[in-house]
Design a binder for these strands. Structure first.
Lengths: 356, 356
DNA sequence: GTGAAAGCGCTAACAT
DNA sequence: ATGTTAGCGCTTTCAC
């Protein structure tokens, strides 16, 4: 890729890089008071003379002082910041983020999204690591997006979105994956497909298990056998999903349809099909899951199962705010261990058709 | 909205909330060494006996210790974390985030996105505040998304995306807004529109200025006058944009087309048109800017100007990594003050047509 | 090879 | 009403 960086105008006065950060000590020195007094003024504590307040405010403004999130959170244990912990920023997690952002407005909290899964790729346990690194200090509470492992949450309030299988110790928000899988499978059966492959999600996630279960159960009850070689794992990720798709489409008795456990995988399937010279949906029908915006933008637009991702993010944040502000005043839900399951719905688009 | 929280199963053993965070002191005590030694082991410093290393590692694993990002960053001044500072998480900034996330993979850095604009709405100066709060300590460098004010960056390396007007003291990434506006305006003129309204972006942003300039210049050079009442400000935000749209569509001599400075505004225009019983594009053509995924999902799909948002995020991060790792080894670009401008392109869809 | 001590910037007790 | 002190969890000299 060509490099298009160009020389720019010279920096304007006042915009150049300054020396180091302005600290509370700088403000205190300039104002002729103690750091403690500055702290009180900045945090609106009682017991400071009006004159002093005004003066300190003045100096704060002059110097452009802002309290360091790091230092204050280390000391005080309350930051007014809520964390959204994700493995990486992809369409799924950013949809959640949009909803979280909307929900946090007006609560007095700020949002900090941390992507801890990019360091070592395929990193299991990023959620534990991220939570340990940020929890208790930097953020007052956290929303965990698709955590794959159970975790000791310690003192930090946590809400999970679409978590691992098994009992959860934290309030959980997810969508009805089983029902969604049933809808998708019925859609394919109704179109006349009998040989249908399933590209599973990330092992360990409950949503992954439920989507497979929904698929298999629906096929079974329709009296259509599911050959073992048609059950693959895509891990919710494009790379592995493409590999699995290649394998399944290379079969002598090729499936006429693929149900992928998420849209990213489904999009990968469509790409692989194209590589192999298969037309979608003429030669191969593809169904996804999630209804991320990208699913409507690919060619052909993807038939998929919608989960209300933004709503899930918003609900999780509202629940978290309740937890952080004290269980008593919890606005949404009450005690730990709750579970909110939102509905899913089929979104028929152009990637599915009757088999040739 | 009905509350669907349901009681859940009892927490499984080992998953319940623990007491407090495991600190380096806990590990030290359990391992029978000093905190300093634990620190050395955890950070891979030299001068620790292999036996000790193994033992400490063991205890770290047992206790599930993770170094606190807050504490270590306060002391050491290097965190391995890059910040992306945004006003809020909406489609524009999350597209940037996707690109940033992709670019950061494999660099050894982690990504922390901070939304500092939701606290007080319409908050000018969130970028300065956020940077002050996180910079120098929490993050090693930051990408600022659409900062509206110039700022003293201090010691923290910063790259700006689509910033304020005027000379910038930091490397900047943006898209060719002027050219994009020309393309959009020419498109409308070509369709036969003569009475075209413009819904401006956020005052203070260079992109906003350039889009207006591109629009006005193109209209002028086509010999089509732009009535002052057709030049409005939407601020890149749905609410104000809708208001402006209502005003302009209530005009006796209603425009036949609206060019909105971003997609969010354009979508708001379409909604207002619908409210007023105007069909898009039959009664009113609408063009947006950005090509956020949502622009293709609305009804009718929006004609818009594409900027390569993900690419912009990726480029900004790569540049930032160069800055943080030392100007010498800068992988992308060299000195401060550079400017990368990426191309824009018209994306014709269904929201534009010849005037009735 | 290891530990004691100091201190990053801030705030909460406790003086004064 | 204000200042002094201590310490959050960690890393970094610098002794030992």
């Amino acid at each position: 890729m060509a490099d298009a960086w160009q020389p720019a105008t010279t920096p304007a006065p006042g915009l150049v890089a300054g020396p180091t950060r302005v600290t509370i000590t700088d403000v205190a020195a300039r104002a002729g008071v103690s750091p403690a007094t500055v702290s009180k003024v900045v945090n609106g504590r009682y017991g400071v003379a009006p004159r002093t307040i005004a003066h300190v405010r003045q100096v704060v403004a002059e110097l452009g002082y802002e309290t360091s999130l790091v230092a204050s959170s280390l000391r005080s244990r309350r930051t007014g910041v809520l964390g959204v912990l994700v493995a990486e920023f992809e369409p799924y997690s950013t949809e959640i983020l949009k909803g979280a952002s909307r929900a946090v407005a007006g609560t007095g909290y700020e949002l900090l999204a941390y992507s801890g899964g990019t360091r070592t790729d395929g990193d299991e346990g990023w959620e534990r690591r991220s939570l340990s690194r940020l929890g208790g200090t930097l953020v007052d509470g956290a929303v965990l997006v698709t955590p794959t492992v159970a975790l000791v949450t310690g003192a930090t309030p946590v809400v999970a979105i679409d978590p691992h299988a098994g009992p959860a110790a934290v309030p959980t928000v997810d969508a009805d994956s089983h029902r969604g899988a049933v809808l998708a499978t019925e859609h394919l059966l109704r179109l006349g497909h009998r040989r249908v492959a399933f590209l599973g999600g990330r092992p360990g996630l409950e949503s992954s298990r439920l989507r497979e279960e929904g698929f298999v159960a629906t096929m079974r009850s329709a009296g259509v056998p599911v050959a073992p070689e048609l059950l693959r794992v895509g891990g919710y990720r494009p790379g592995p999903a493409a590999e699995a798709a290649r394998a399944v489409l290379a079969l002598a008795d090729r499936p006429t349809a693929v149900f992928a456990a998420n849209d990213l995988s489904a999009i990968a399937v469509v790409e692989v099909a194209r590589e192999l010279g298969l037309a979608v949906p003429a030669d191969l029908s593809v169904v996804g899951f999630d209804n991320i915006p990208e699913s409507a933008l690919v060619d052909p637009p993807l038939t998929t199962v919608e989960q209300p991702l933004q709503e899930m993010g918003a609900r999780a944040v509202r629940r978290l705010v309740g937890l952080v502000d004290g269980d008593a005043a919890a606005g949404e839900g009450a005690a730990w261990g709750d579970h909110l399951r939102l509905p899913t719905a089929l979104v028929p688009r152009a990637s599915t058709a009757p088999p040739a």
